[in-house]
Amino acid sequence: MKKYIICFSILSFLLACNKDKIEITAADCNNEFPTYQDVKSILDDKCGTAGCHVGGSSPASFYGNYDVAVPYLNLEPNGFKNRVIEIGDMPEVNSPGQLTVDEKDLLDCWIQGGYAKE
């Protein structure tokens, strides 16, 4: 019995191995960087939804205005980029807000421009 389990474990390990990568290319911003007003609707609708980043007992709030969002972004400048652009686990897959390619590119350019307010 033990031998079967060991063989099965090794086989499943070897057969299911891939060495794949997803290409993450920075958005082409053409030196035009959006401001908070350009991305506000994305942050409000896709991040600041109920149960997510809307304050209360939820993690850092992105809903409302720049002054609410910027303390978290100042504290975690790479964290926002990492979660939204590089790893891409935000917005969470089961949350109501999913980013389109254009929205993701716009956020990427906002990040590249240093989270500009105006």
Partner: peptide
């Protein structure tokens, strides 16, 4: 659930 858009790990 699988993501509908590519470029993410899921």
């Amino acid at each position: 659930k699988k993501s509908s858009s590519d470029g993410v790990l899921h």
